[in-house]
């Protein structure tokens, strides 16, 4: 189970993006999710993200993420009304508690909690999208350009991970044959059995690490300045997606400065739509962010499109 990346290559359009374009797209989505407070904007963002997830056949994976989010969303919805006393429209007066003082639940705080749980879902969905479209390898190769040594540590660890999981399983089997029953005994008795596994794994891995180091040294590691091998290609699609992301970011910053995408919950709820600008800015942002989704749609259906981008 743990010898496969979470990422699965399906040869889809969004998976073929250059890592810079893909990471910028996810990054801009992330920044916007954290920037917006207007529920309409948050919902719009969530819509785009879900469309993108659907474009990489990821709705099944997204469901798992949705389940993880639900608990946290609930937490956010509960905590906000309980601890925030800034709202004016009080709908429930509760008892007095030692730490929090008099419990009051206000309409504003409930709305804030709801908006924030949408933000939470959006953020978690962005990571779901990220997992679906960015191969870990691509991130490592991008990182190698700036921090080659750290990237090397990371890629070595990534490469070793599946092997080590397997080794752990082998060690477990050997211990079973030597009479260790992992399911018997209290927690306190089982802990040393588990620690013995880690102990063997540690001893063997440390020995192995010297052999790996030797192989690296034999291939001239640490013999001077390194260069960096690049293998990602930049296509027109990457320019388009990057352009869309940057445009969305710029418009969002403008909207934020003008107050279109902000929304004040306290002390009283603001108007959702403050004027035509609110809607125009939102539409531009959604369109700009939909560029990859639209391209993906076209790429799947139109051979001409495929050849051009």
């Amino acid at each position: 189970m743990f010898d496969q990346f979470f990422y699965q290559d399906k040869g889809l359009f969004l998976q073929s993006l250059h890592p810079v374009a893909a990471l910028s797209y996810a990054g801009v989505l992330m920044v916007l999710a954290l920037l917006f407070t207007n529920p309409l904007y948050l919902l719009g963002l969530l819509l785009v993200i879900i469309l993108a997830v659907a474009a990489v056949d990821g709705l099944a994976a997204w469901e798992t993420y949705l389940k993880i989010s639900l608990g946290m969303m609930l937490l956010v919805i509960i905590i906000n009304p309980l601890v925030v006393h800034a709202g004016e429209t009080i709908i429930w007066w509760g008892p007095r508690l030692p730490v929090f003082g008099r419990l009051t639940v206000s309409l504003e705080a409930i709305c804030y909690g709801a908006a924030m749980s949408v933000r939470l879902l959006a953020i978690i969905s962005i990571f779901c999208l990220y997992n679906l479209i960015v191969h870990p390898d691509k991130v490592l190769s991008l990182l190698a350009r700036f921090a080659s040594r750290s990237a090397l540590v990371l890629s070595l660890a990534t490469r070793m991970f599946p092997a080590m999981i397997r080794q752990m399983e082998n060690i477990r089997e050997v211990q079973v044959v030597r009479g260790v029953d992992f399911h018997a005994g209290t927690l306190k008795e089982r802990l040393p059995k588990y620690a013995a596994l880690m102990n063997i794994l540690l001893l063997s891995s440390l020995e192995d690490s010297l052999e790996i180091a030797e192989a690296m040294q034999a291939r001239a590691f640490g013999s001077g300045r390194r260069s960096c091998y690049r293998r990602d290609t930049w296509r027109p699609r990457d320019s388009l997606c990057l352009g869309g992301s940057l445009l969305a970011l710029a418009v969002a910053v403008y909207g934020q400065a003008k107050g279109c995408s902000t929304f004040s919950f306290y002390p009283e709820l603001d108007y959702l739509i403050k004027g035509p600008m609110t809607v125009i800015v939102l539409i531009i942002i959604i369109l700009a962010l939909s560029v990859p989704v639209v391209l993906s749609w076209g790429w799947q259906r139109c051979p001409y499109f495929k050849a051009k981008i």
Binding site: V153, I165, L201, S209
Partner: peptide
Amino acid sequence: VSSREVAVIAMLGTIAAV
């Protein structure tokens, strides 16, 4: 950082990950 250190650090990280 020597090649030995890189390898050991990566191994320790992997063990913690496991």
